[in-house]
Amino acid sequence: MTETYKAINWNQIEDMVDKLTWEKLVEQFWTDTRIPLSNDLSDWQKLSFEEKDMIAKVFGGLTLLDTLQSQDGIEALKKSIRTQHEEAVYNNIEFMESMHAKSYSAIFSTLNTKSEIDQIFEWTHSNEMLQKKAQIINAIYQEGSDLQKKVASVFLESFLFYSGFFAPLHYLGNSKMTNVAEIIKLILRDESVHGTYIGYKFQIGYNQLSEAEQEELKNWTYDLLFKLYENEMEYTEYLYGAIGWTDRVGVFLRYNANKALQNLGFDPLFPDTSEDVDPIIMNGISTGTSNHDFFSQVGNGYLLGMVETMEDEDYVKWY
């Protein structure tokens, strides 16, 4: 007998978090083409060679990680869906990760020459530290258990991106490169929801394990974070050492590593809190709407309903 194909019914929700997340992501929809990046050219031209080189590599690295998430990460998560609505949410996340990757190319095409862009992408293919973190995460996507894949995804969404996010947030806090930072703030909104949602799905599965299985997975999770953190600090020194930002970025990384653990329902590993993060960076994260008129005077990030950027309440336990 032929198996009946089941239509998705949004009037019969098995997990209300699926519906709420879908609605939040739809409210947050944006495109890079509606942000006037060329308005940042005067700021860009005033930056030093070292700063320009750092920014190019920062966005090159972010492009690679978003490509990994859109091409391999979300597809790996779909294999363990609990509801049809969950797959719909993953489809939305997958598309927006592609939008994130494309948005960095929009930045490159505005700020860089063709030869510079070619050099940036060649660098992403050859940098050992960048490739190492992509390879660690992708190996889990290809070979890990369903819950291990979710851990890897949350660490990518809620931790590994943030070494790259630091630079545009720094410039935003100093009223420079504000349109480039606008894109980063939109991406931050997305990643906050992605990390929280995938962490929630992890917690459902984790809570169904035996105590021994939970302990084993928790230990594996912290070991993975240590491995990623060591590489990430080397990468941070490589990116920011020449301009003296390594220590500031390190605090920001540890703060977000704790947030990633919180998304998974685990205790923080590092002592760093929001109070320790450079206030310029925290101010950049929390800055409200600006003056862009995209559709109907909605402002920064399209002023998307109740969604706020990277507030602590985004990092909640959904159970």
Rank of each mutant, 00 (worst) to 15 (best):
I183E: 07
I184D: 02
L186W: 15
L188K: 06
L188P: 04
R189F: 02
T196F: 04
Y197K: 09
G199I: 11
Y200L: 13
K201W: 06
F202G: 02
I204C: 13
G205Y: 04
N207P: 02
E211V: 08
A212W: 11
E213S: 12
E215Y: 09
E216R: 14
E216A: 15
K218L: 10
N219Y: 07
N219K: 15
Y222E: 05
D223E: 15
L224R: 09
L224V: 09
K227Q: 14
K227W: 06
L228R: 14
Y229P: 01
Y229E: 12
E230K: 11
E232V: 05
E232R: 14
M233G: 00
M233E: 05
E234C: 04
Y235D: 07
Y235T: 03
Y235F: 11
E237L: 13
Y238A: 08
Y238R: 02
Y240G: 02
I243Q: 00
G244R: 03
W245Y: 11
T246V: 07
T246M: 03
D247C: 01
D247A: 10
V249L: 04
V249W: 04
G250D: 06
G250I: 00
G250N: 12
L253H: 01
K259S: 03
A260H: 02
Q262H: 09
N263P: 01
F266D: 00
F266P: 00
D267F: 09
P268H: 06
L269D: 02
F270R: 00
F270K: 01
S274D: 10
E275F: 11
E275L: 10
D276T: 08
D276V: 10
D278K: 09
P279Q: 12
N283C: 09
N283L: 13
I285F: 07
S286F: 05
S286D: 05
T287Q: 09
G288E: 01
S290F: 12
H292K: 04
H292R: 12
H292W: 02
D293P: 07
F294N: 07
F294L: 11
F295S: 07
S296V: 08
V298S: 14
G299A: 08
G301K: 07
